[in-house]
Design a protein around this nucleic acid. Structure first.
Length: 109
DNA sequence: CAGGTGACCACTT
DNA sequence: TAAGTGGCCACCT
């Protein structure tokens, strides 16, 4: 099909778009779902390309539940407010309560 | 042209 | 058990 790069991006966006509201997932789980377990960084690049698109990339956090991408969102407060608006709860550390809201791509399919 | 960086994670010692 | 290192692929300087 088209470029492999674009295909990878599309897969990431597909998974991100599959994240239920009020749920979050991690780069590693997305990467693994795409068959690139060690390419979590590449997933971040895909989200970077998603910047400016209608992709709920704000639902993607790092394995600690921290808003790593908040920097590219215009401020951690912005991403935090968006997630809270979705019903996502945060810990006193400012991290998402992934233990209760972590969504695994494909695990529910 | 070549090197370093980056929205990170998993594995090994 | 915890800590440290490598790897992944593409873009930017």
């Amino acid at each position: 099909m088209g470029s492999d790069k674009e295909d990878f991006f599309s897969r990431v966006w597909r998974v991100v778009d599959d994240i239920p509201t009020g749920r979050v997932t991690t780069y590693g789980h997305i990467a693994k779902a795409l068959g690139a377990t060690r390419s979590a960084r590449m997933v971040g690049w895909a989200l970077n390309a998603a910047s400016g698109h209608a992709r709920p990339c704000h639902r993607v956090v790092n394995r600690f539940g921290g808003l790593s991408g908040s920097t590219h969102f215009g401020g951690a407060h912005v991403m935090e407010d968006m997630l809270r608006g979705e019903g996502v709860l945060f810990d006193d550390d400012g991290c998402v309560t992934m233990d209760d809201q972590l969504w695994v791509p494909g695990a529910y399919d």
